[in-house]
Simulated scan of single mutants.
Amino acid sequence: MSAAPRVVVLAGGVGGSKFTVGVREALRRRWPDGQGGSAAELTVIVNTGDDIWMSGLRLQPDVDSQIYALAGVNDTERGWGRAGESERVSAEMKALGAGWPWFTLGDLDLGAHIARTGWLRDGVPLSEVVARLAARWPLGARLLPMTEAEVDTQVLTDDGRMHFQEWWTRHRASIPARGFVSPGIEDAVPAPGVLEALAAADAILFAPSNPVVSIHPILAVPGIADAVRAARGGVAGVSPIIAGSPVRGMADACLDAVGIRTAADAVGRHYGSRRDGGLLDAWLIAEEDAVLAPGLVASGVPASVHPLWMRDLDTGAALASAALDAALATDGR
């Protein structure tokens, strides 16, 4: 393809934001606009299943991770939040016995939460709220929430339900999960622009995000999975599993809960091939998992082997470029 493409990324979590930065850089290098950006169009459909109300504030961890990473203000050492943070407000809340002591909010981060909550209380639609937050910096990408409905992910355990953030952040996924639900998601609708972006895309990329709690909630919004299957552009996914272990986080606990092995081939088969009613035209697995490629291909999942570790901007851009090539090569199926 000689013309600059329209690219859509489905993403959630810190790993997803790292991949999005790589995609933006790959587009800048391959289709430069002469002004330091790219002539290509990049849209990110972000998981909002991680969203939560806390102390009267609406938090959107995955949306904020995308914004901070693309803006270059994320804390790369901690892996979440803003760089150069202070935590005076959280310390005062803890002294007052308010909030959750295991969920620390930085002062800069709180500024975003307060602004978001104020706009939502004033009746501003969530898509516009996300756009206003993203306008704080020149991101080089358009961010869309998967839906404007509140469909927070809950974890099913032997003792009942808890919000995903409590299970993930407080308990570090140590409590056995029996499943995950997003109450109300069956009645949700895609946020404005989501279906249109998927229909117009030349390439759709699944970030190496948690398949269960980052990518699945996006696809569970009625209409989104069907739009991916019907898209004229190619669809490529990147495995979040390397050599039997998650690239980041505790995705293995999530996969175990829904009966999927923590393996690159198992996740690829979970997504499935579009020609067989699934979602993928291409599935990128790591060099460490090269032995799995023939079995995936034989089962109908079009797998290829690439370096998947995103150690810096160059390796992230190289992975993104490989995913783009795989999707663009199957443009139009």
Rank of each mutant, 00 (worst) to 15 (best):
P145D: 01
W102Y: 11
E166L: 06
W80E: 03
R88C: 10
D152N: 14
A134L: 09
Q165N: 13
V130F: 06
P125W: 01
Q154L: 14
F103K: 02
G123L: 03
A69K: 01
E77H: 07
I67A: 02
E148C: 10
A95Q: 11
R82H: 13
A112T: 09
S127E: 14
T157V: 05
L96R: 09
G97C: 12
G123K: 00
T117N: 12
D62Q: 05
V124K: 02
R116L: 04
R170A: 12
G72R: 07
V124S: 00
T104S: 06
S86F: 00
D152P: 08
D122R: 10
T157I: 09
A95Y: 10
A149T: 07
D109C: 08
R78L: 14
L144Y: 07
R116P: 01
T157W: 10
D122E: 15
D122M: 14
L120S: 04
R142F: 01
R78Q: 13
A71T: 02
N74S: 09
E87V: 12
V130Y: 07
G81L: 08
A83F: 14
V89L: 14
Q60Y: 05
R82P: 09
S86C: 00
V63P: 08
A69S: 15
V129E: 01
S90E: 05
L156G: 03
L120T: 10
K94Y: 01
A134N: 04
G84K: 06
Q66W: 02
T104W: 09
G140Q: 07
W100K: 07
W119T: 00
E150T: 13
V73F: 02
L139F: 07
T169Y: 11
V73G: 03
T169P: 03
R121S: 11
G118H: 11
E87A: 09
R170T: 04
W100Y: 03
T76R: 15
G97Y: 06
S90Q: 11
F164L: 15
V124I: 05
L96K: 10
G106D: 13
E150Y: 05
L156N: 01
